[in-house]
């Protein structure tokens, strides 16, 4: 059987951070209640000259710098996001040009709330498996929007990761993937609106928890595995609490979740969330480690992956691009006024 998997990866997190307590103070809320309730200490903030295209390009360039593939061998680029800079004009065209992969490739932008990046991985897997392409690049990135004063504002952050999918020199084999999708309106953004809306507590049990637990169980049934078979487990992380709770419901331990749980220190990077969690795990993973990943996208759906790290990971030149921990540590705090300017909350003409 041919191994389809990850050939290389790269991550990017903007340098600016705002503390949850500073957002709470701006809106007259109790900082301790907010920080403790959501499990988010601080979140990343994109600067005025950063968007999903720049984050995607930085991630993809990092992925390419760590391996020796020719960008002209990339046959597909899919960028998953809910904050593409253009409504009509694919972010992937900008990425393809910036990594010298044009013109002989296919490109499309994906949107499925926070799981558009993992949907891109699945598409690349299928194209590689069918020999339609040699390599595909799947990117999940966001500069997530949140209305000023909304509960989402404490979490909505920026970041992304890129994965080169192929079948030669894979550092991590994707053994199996499956999805679970329903029409569940827990969170949405209507056409032409600047900020999303959500169903409050409805986003929990029938949405996040139902889709992730159902899909995770389906994957373990397909692969004949149990939680204890995995070294690492990554779950979508809209806040710091949900992924820990869903892990416990499924029988995973906090230790398995720790390396891929970034939300408490960078916020919810939406389409970038599980992708950055996977990048963080790949930063430390060793051959034979097994990784369980389950994304979640409102609307709603979940993609799950069973991944095994190969010996080839030792040959990947990880130091040629920043590790996720280095991106997290390289930070500069901004106050709420600067954050409001950077996120275009102050409108003038």
């Amino acid at each position: 059987m041919v191994n389809i998997g990850i050939v290389s990866y790269g991550a990017y997190i903007p340098r600016f951070r705002i503390k949850s307590s500073d957002i709470a103070k701006a809106w007259g809320k109790d900082p301790k209640t907010i920080t403790g309730g959501l499990g988010i200490i601080e979140k990343s903030v994109p600067s005025l000259d950063q968007d999903v295209a720049t984050i995607s390009v930085e991630s993809a360039r990092s992925a390419l710098s760590r391996c020796s593939i020719n960008p002209q061998d990339i046959g597909a680029i899919y960028v998953g996001s809910e904050s593409h800079p253009y409504a009509v004009k694919p972010t992937g065209t900008i990425v393809a040009e910036a990594v010298c992969a044009t013109p002989n490739l296919t490109v499309a932008d994906y949107e499925f709330a926070c799981k558009a990046g993992t949907a891109a991985i699945q598409t690349c897997m299928a194209l590689v498996k069918s020999d339609m392409i040699k390599y595909g690049v799947a990117i999940g990135a966001d500069t997530a929007q949140a209305a000023p004063g909304d509960a989402l504002e404490y979490a909505a952050s920026a970041g992304g990761a890129a994965f080169i999918i192929g079948k030669e020199n894979v550092i991590a084999t994707i053994n199996q993937t499956c999805s679970f999708t329903t029409d569940t309106p827990d969170f949405w953004r209507r056409e032409g609106r600047k900020y999303p809306a959500h169903g409050g507590r409805f986003t929990g049990a029938p949405a996040y928890f139902r889709h992730i637990t159902s899909n995770a169980k389906n994957l373990m049934e397909l692969t004949g595995t149990k939680p204890e078979d995995y070294t690492f487990a990554i779950f979508h992380q809209p806040n710091g609490k949900f992924p820990v709770r869903v892990a416990k419901m499924l029988g995973f331990t906090p230790e398995q979740v720790k390396q891929g749980l970034l939300c408490p220190v960078i916020g919810n990077t939406y389409s970038g969330a599980t992708m950055l969690g996977l990048a963080s795990v790949l930063d430390v993973a060793k051959p034979s480690d097994r990784v369980f990943l389950t994304s979640y996208g409102s609307g709603a759906g979940s993609d799950a992956f069973d991944i095994t790290i190969t010996d080839t990971i030792n040959q990947l030149e990880k130091k040629k691009a920043p590790l996720v921990s280095e991106l997290i540590d390289d930070k500069e705090y901004v106050d709420y006024a600067t954050y409001a300017k950077y996120r275009d909350l102050l409108y003038w003409e």
Binding site: T54, P85, I94
Partner: peptide, 20 residues
């Protein structure tokens, strides 16, 4: 070098990217 947005033609125009 890094890849950034350089400027745009307002809220409806094209976005121009490049090196910083």
């Amino acid at each position: 070098s890094t890849f950034r947005k350089i400027q745009d033609d307002g809220y409806v125009g094209a976005i121009y990217y490049g090196y910083k």
